[in-house]
Amino acid sequence: MAENERLDAVAYLDRFFDELRDEVRTNPKFANRLVKAMGGKVVFEDSTKTDIANPYLLAAEGNKSEFYTVFSPLKTTQLKKILKDNNLATSVDIRGKSPSQLLDMLYDRASLKVSERKSSYF
């Protein structure tokens, strides 16, 4: 935007929301944060889930069935990626495991880490 360009309020907002819309479309992590901040419940597609679903945050909420609801639709490769990306398993640990074993591993290990690391105060 040229520095001395003058916009009316509506044009200004249009630009702002265009940018925001683009970001939400292309950046699932940001979209997830935004939705969370607004307190909404929005469903994400499978392909973006691996990027945004954070096993630690979900495990910390302490709702096991919600955890399984979010992660059980994922394919084996997606589960493996989440386990590895979050330092919850090595390639050796996940070798030959079925989706349900991977899901249990994800839940058990994320919950374990959360319970060991979360402060007991506040």
Partner: peptide, 18 residues
Amino acid sequence: LNAMERAAPDSYDTFRGK
């Protein structure tokens, strides 16, 4: 940093992987 965070008490990795 990655090598120093063991995933779980029963987690193993190859030397290369770790």
